[in-house]
Design a protein around this nucleic acid. Structure first.
Ligand SMILES: [Mn+2]
Ligand SMILES: [Mn+2]
Ligand SMILES: [Zn+2]
Ligand SMILES: [Zn+2]
Lengths: 132, 132
DNA sequence: CACTTATTTAGAACCATTATAAACTGGTTG
DNA sequence: CAACCAGTTTATAATGGTTCTAAATAAGTG
């Protein structure tokens, strides 16, 4: 199976439920952004199964820890995740509450001049808020 | 009083409690970042009064709406606010969970090349995550 | 003062997320 | 095969930040 490596590498056994979550997360033409609730809905639609919320949270968090999913920093009551784990940025449409990818090439190179001693830069993320 | 304009302009009458919140928020040498809980603690320390949580939330949100405070987009279980309302960016120290200002001059100019038709850019915010 | 409207407050409600603990699974071993 | 076992799933409860509510209080007006 194609998802077994991802699961094993994340410290998870390839169970039926986890493989179904992988199916919804990774078997797509395009990457996408989601909240846990939206993912739960997608699972219900795509697979004809209900997977408990705890399992969804656990799996998503394990993938995030290993870098197979990214969390998107945004002010919302729900946490947003991204299946696009390349370095990239986001538009956030304030009215529709929708995220849109901004490729690195859509944003000029970002050069952080300030240094904090003893700390390394782990990531640089740009959020561009949009209004009408 | 020096805060009456800010309050009136935010649609709020200058009451004792609100003036005390202003004192803590705006009567400082430096700007700072805070969560609602941290602000509540600061109020208890600085003024010898307890102001109800509902009043703190209401006042902070009214100021944020008018641009006297900013929300900082970050993944945390609590909302972070900033008394620095100029255009600027942030380091986020993942270990200490502390925010550090990055002035616009500390970050090269950011040129967003992609356009979304019918939408205007409201803000561009950079979050730089730091690890040890 | 009498009257009206805004504000404050404690506590309840809300809800995303996390924790718990009992039932289940599938492999391993004697 | 049966007993065992560690990991997993699940329903449900607990947590905690935020928002709502409704009663008490304060402030503004004539
Ligand atoms: Mn999380
Ligand atoms: Mn808010
Ligand atoms: Zn994305
Ligand atoms: Zn700041």
């Amino acid at each position: 199976m194609k998802y077994i490596d991802k699961l094993r590498n994340s410290g998870l056994r390839p169970t039926k439920q986890r493989l179904q979550i992988c199916e919804v997360l990774f078997n797509n033409e395009k990457t996408f952004h989601f909240t846990i609730n939206e993912l739960e809905q997608k699972i219900k639609d795509r697979i004809d199964t209900k997977i408990s919320l705890a399992t969804v949270y656990n799996t998503v968090h394990a993938f995030e820890k290993k870098g197979y999913l990214k969390q998107i920093p945004i002010n919302s009551n729900q946490t947003y995740f991204d299946t696009n784990v390349t370095d990239h940025h986001h538009f956030y449409d304030l009215k529709d509450q929708k995220l849109i990818d901004l490729e690195n090439s859509d944003v000029g190179p970002i050069n952080i001049k300030k240094k904090i001693s003893g700390k390394r830069i782990k990531s640089v993320e740009v959020l561009v808020k949009l209004e009408d």
